[in-house]
């Protein structure tokens, strides 16, 4: 475990905590995409099936369980919480799941390291994670007043991806035979998805203005 990896995981964790706190404190999920959260739930379920088959470390297991539990909590609140669910922007959050899920599934069947159920699902989760933020970004673009916490949530998620790239560079230089091309390419694609958002986030922060994304 290197510092970039740990910082990346902590940033990922922090992003989810920010979202949970925001929803809990304001009793609102305005500007939050349920589609993105549900895609993340699919990502975590498919990737963490190895909780049952492969023990890596206590840290690894605990983090996986936290990511699963927190994502399902967010989904539960957005769908069923008496107060929060009323604030969900259903009409704006219109991105279609199948546009992301189907291509990723097909790609995972074709491009994988082993054609087994576990491996294909794992690879599928890698591809799906790369694009799962898209419904959230589209929703942000449609939201006129992006509140700070939603903006920070997406910024932290993007930072987590950037830190993972540094982690891979570090591992590549220090560990012999450490290669994972599918993960690297998906991770780079995933980080590129955030670049546009980063640009406007930093600009609004420097100018002390409220964040808004051009349509």
């Amino acid at each position: 475990m290197n510092i970039f990896r740990l910082a990346g995981d902590m940033t990922h964790l922090l992003s989810i905590i920010v979202l949970l706190l925001k929803m809990n404190a304001t009793r609102s999920c305005r500007g939050v995409s349920l589609k993105t959260q549900e895609l993340y739930a699919v990502v975590f379920v498919c990737r963490y099936l190895d909780l049952f088959t492969n023990f890596i470390s206590l840290y690894n297991t605990v983090m996986k369980l936290i990511f699963l539990a927190s994502t399902f909590t967010i989904i539960y609140w957005m769908r069923f919480h008496k107060v929060i669910r009323v604030t969900y922007d259903r009409e704006q959050d219109t991105f279609r799941y199948q546009f992301l899920v189907l291509p990723c599934l097909v790609l995972a069947m074709v491009l994988n390291s082993e054609f087994t159920v576990m491996e294909v699902l794992w690879t599928f989760s890698i591809y799906l994670e790369a694009v799962a933020i898209l419904p959230q970004l589209v929703l942000l673009q449609r939201t006129n007043n992006i509140d700070n916490l939603t903006g920070n949530y997406v910024f932290l998620l993007g930072s987590y991806r950037a830190l993972y790239i540094l982690n891979w560079i570090y591992r590549f230089m220090t560990e012999p035979n450490y290669r994972q091309y599918l993960v690297w390419i998906s991770g780079i694609v995933q980080t590129i998805v955030y670049i546009d958002f980063f640009y406007y986030y930093i600009k609004s922060w420097r100018n002390n203005e409220k964040l808004s994304l051009p349509a």
Binding site: R5, L182, V183
Partner: peptide
């Protein structure tokens, strides 16, 4: 694609 991936990342 033949690669054995270390699945120790989250």
């Amino acid at each position: 694609v033949a690669e054995k991936i270390a699945k120790d990342e989250l």
